[in-house]
């Protein structure tokens, strides 16, 4: 029902020459993680780590990926979040 936009993902991986990629999906798209993993591996050879946890929004970026040597995080279902200090 929602476009994966895999071509954009593959293009970015090649552009930044990422060797290890973490993919973060909203719950509704998580069943397609294998499809994404296979496409990335086949087209770019990059190692794919699938984020198991939450994806509440662009405010909810996984922490600690640098320590695992992740070069690129691809997060589906959101657009850049313009954080404001305090609310609103």
């Amino acid at each position: 029902m929602y476009k994966l936009e895999l071509e954009k993902a593959l293009e970015k991986i090649k552009e930044v020459n990422a060797k290890t990629v973490c993919i973060q999906l909203p719950d509704g798209m998580k069943p397609r993680a294998n499809e994404i993993e296979e496409a990335i591996k086949k087209d770019t050879g990059a190692k794919v780590l699938i984020w198991l946890g939450s994806n509440f929004g662009a405010c909810d970026i996984p922490l600690g990926l640098d320590r695992l040597g992740v070069d690129l995080l691809i997060s589906w279902g959101h657009v850049k979040f313009c954080k404001t200090e305090g609310w609103p």
Binding site: K3, V16, I74, W76, G77, V79
Partner: peptide, 13 residues
Amino acid sequence: MKTLFLEAPYEKK
């Protein structure tokens, strides 16, 4: 680490 957001647009009309 770089980050790419993909909006996952609705594919139907």
